[in-house]
Amino acid sequence: MIHRKEMNMLKSALRTLVAAALVTGTLAGCATSDSAAVYSKGQMRQAQNVEFGTVVSVQNVLMEGNNNELLTLGGAALGGIAGSTIGQGRGAAAGTIVGALAGGFGTQAAQRNLGTKNALEITVKLDRSGRMLSIVQEADIPFAVGQRVKVLTGGGNDRVAPL
Results as ranks from 00 to 15, higher is better:
N8A: 14
V98M: 13
A139S: 06
G25M: 09
V149D: 07
A20S: 14
N67I: 02
A21F: 14
Q111C: 12
P142Y: 01
T153F: 03
A76R: 00
K5N: 14
R15N: 13
Q43R: 06
G75I: 00
Q43G: 12
A37M: 08
R131H: 08
M132R: 13
I135C: 05
T32S: 08
R159E: 00
K5V: 15
S35P: 04
G146C: 04
Q147Y: 03
A109C: 14
I81Y: 10
T123M: 12
A94G: 11
E121Q: 15
A110R: 10
Y39E: 05
I86A: 10
D140K: 01
F143K: 02
T54Q: 06
A19K: 06
S134A: 14
Q59S: 01
R112H: 15
R45I: 02
V55E: 02
I122Y: 03
G130W: 06
F143L: 06
P162W: 00
I122M: 06
D34A: 12
S129M: 07
G74I: 00
Q59K: 08
Q48W: 02
A92Q: 10
L78W: 01
G156D: 03
D140S: 08
L62Y: 02
G29M: 13
V151L: 05
V124H: 09
N67M: 04
P162R: 09
G87L: 06
H3I: 10
S134G: 07
N60F: 00
Y39I: 06
S33L: 11
G89S: 10
I81M: 07
R15P: 07
G75D: 01
D127A: 11
A144R: 11
V56Y: 01
K125D: 10
L126I: 12
R131A: 14
N157V: 10
L14H: 10
M7Q: 14
R148E: 04
T24F: 10
A20V: 07
A19V: 14
H3C: 13
A93E: 11
N49G: 07
A31K: 08
R15C: 15
Q108Y: 15
Q147H: 03
L70C: 01
